[in-house]
Design a protein around this nucleic acid. Sequence first.
DNA 1: TAAGATATATAGAAGTGCGAGGCATCATGG
DNA 2: CCATGATGCCTCGCACTTCTATATATCTTA
Lengths: 115, 115
Amino acid sequence: MAELKSNLPQGTLDLLILKAVAFDPVHGYAIAQRLEQVSRGVVQVPEGSLYPALHRLENRGLLAADWKKTDTGREAKFYRLTRKGRKQLEAEAAGWQRLTEAIGLILGMADGGAQ
Amino acid sequence: MAELKSNLPQGTLDLLILKAVAFDPVHGYAIAQRLEQVSRGVVQVPEGSLYPALHRLENRGLLAADWKKTDTGREAKFYRLTRKGRKQLEAEAAGWQRLTEAIGLILGMADGGAQ
DNA sequence: TAAGATATATAGAAGTGCGAGGCATCATGG
DNA sequence: CCATGATGCCTCGCACTTCTATATATCTTA
């Protein structure tokens, strides 16, 4: 069994959370599930990473939260994007794309070809 | 000026260094320049990140180093991939691709469609 | 009443990146 | 002859994030 766990690079989790919340208010537990589902299990978010990240984003004013009832009738903290958070999401998404393109260039370097 | 500094996500630097060294032995200073050039300036590697990373990779047995003379006649530490390092590079490159695809799926989620 | 899924939270450990500094050599030009 | 800038290596310590482990509580089902 090789390493099937795909640890998220530092800073990436915030972007994913912002994106997961962008559509409609969701509570933490569901965010993790949503990310895992959409990424087909590649992205996994342990709770010890998720909740500190949510509080971080809330403190920075990128997320806001309200307590509501879930479908199952339990109280849960539903997070939503603030205006600032949406802006941040756009910026981070663009930055991510720039970065992946740049790294793509590097990984595309010939390493067996000529020079 | 917005944030023009492109911080590398944690763990990515190792991959880039391994790749930069994969073709031929290079010394640290040149690795940073190579990465910056190929990525068109998006990836920047400060020395405070570079040298600790090189030592890390050497200690893990992924890189090996020899002192040689550069074109300019100066002594420099040339790093090369070990067999283990090459294997690691392949694994990390594959992992990176899996990850970017997964994140691509997430970022591709509709968030502004309805409502 | 026990188990398992749902749901939130914190503490501590571990790892990484980066700024700031220090050292040394070589080429250039005043 | 000496100052400057580019080359080239290195370490210290802060800051930040992630993960493992743990604690708590509710609801459903058996």
